[in-house]
């Protein structure tokens, strides 16, 4: 699915240059799960941005099914995001003025799905994450865990090939965290997704089949053959 070769990402802040990623080589097979860990400011989110076509690397190549994202125009990157990638964020990132169903629908808008079909698919996706009875609720009317379920429904409603999650349980309490992790793990297995999960949670990391640790922009992968 992914082939990253010597990916470098530099941020210029005034005269200071920050190497958020430094010569990262990484391969992720289709249907694989990768858990990314590392200290704050290590470059985890930056790596996810590269994988998610949110940004282009300063140097190196990020190829997704043979297409090098580093060479694509902004419009093409947008298309890749719309069709292939599902995102789940730490702070849920729901549109506060839209209902749960409408939030899920936003993921189908760029794909040109007709409104009626959009509503139906959004309702089904919410059903799948256990919020079939909360379609018309606003994010502010839902608990943190429920909001993250809506965000997961939004990520999956378009049936992407890749699911990227940046600390999806970072804002949740322990019980809810396990619920959400269980949901994500289940979906990954059922749908054959390629799943990249950034987490601080070492209990999750311990169970991960494949673990990447990123520190000062440098990546080290630990394979664990059960």
């Amino acid at each position: 699915m992914y082939q990253l070769t010597t990916v470098t990402k530099r941020y210029q802040r005034g005269k200071q240059t920050i190497n958020a990623l430094e010569g990262v080589d990484l391969t992720i097979a289709t249907g694989d799960q990768l858990v990314v860990q590392g200290p704050t400011g290590g470059g985890k989110s930056t790596l996810l941005q590269m994988l998610g076509a949110l940004d282009r690397p300063t140097a190196g190549s990020v190829s997704i099914d043979g297409t090098d994202l580093a060479r694509l125009s902004e419009a093409k990157l947008t298309k890749v995001r719309a069709a292939t990638i599902g995102f789940v964020f730490q702070s849920f990132n729901l549109i506060p003025t839209l209902s749960a169903q409408e939030n899920v629908e936003t993921a189908l808008v760029p794909l040109g799905v007709k409104p009626a079909a959009r509503r139906k698919r959004a309702a089904e996706a919410l059903q799948l994450v256990g919020l079939g009875d909360r379609l018309r609720h606003l994010p502010s009317e839902l608990s943190g865990g429920q909001q993250q379920r809506v965000a997961i429904a939004r990520a999956l409603v378009k049936e992407p090939k890749v699911l990227l999650a940046d600390e999806p349980t970072g804002n949740l309490d322990e019980d809810t965290r396990d619920e959400i992790m269980g949901l994500l793990a289940g979906l990954w297995k059922d749908r054959g997704l390629t799943f990249v999960l950034v987490t601080h949670d070492s209990s999750i990391a311990r169970r991960a089949p494949r673990l990447a640790v990123i520190n000062n922009g440098r990546l080290k992968v630990t394979e664990r053959t059960p």
Partner: peptide, 9 residues
């Protein structure tokens, strides 16, 4: 977020 979800600018 909308852009990340695939909305054109």
């Amino acid at each position: 977020t909308l852009k990340a979800v695939g909305w054109r600018s």
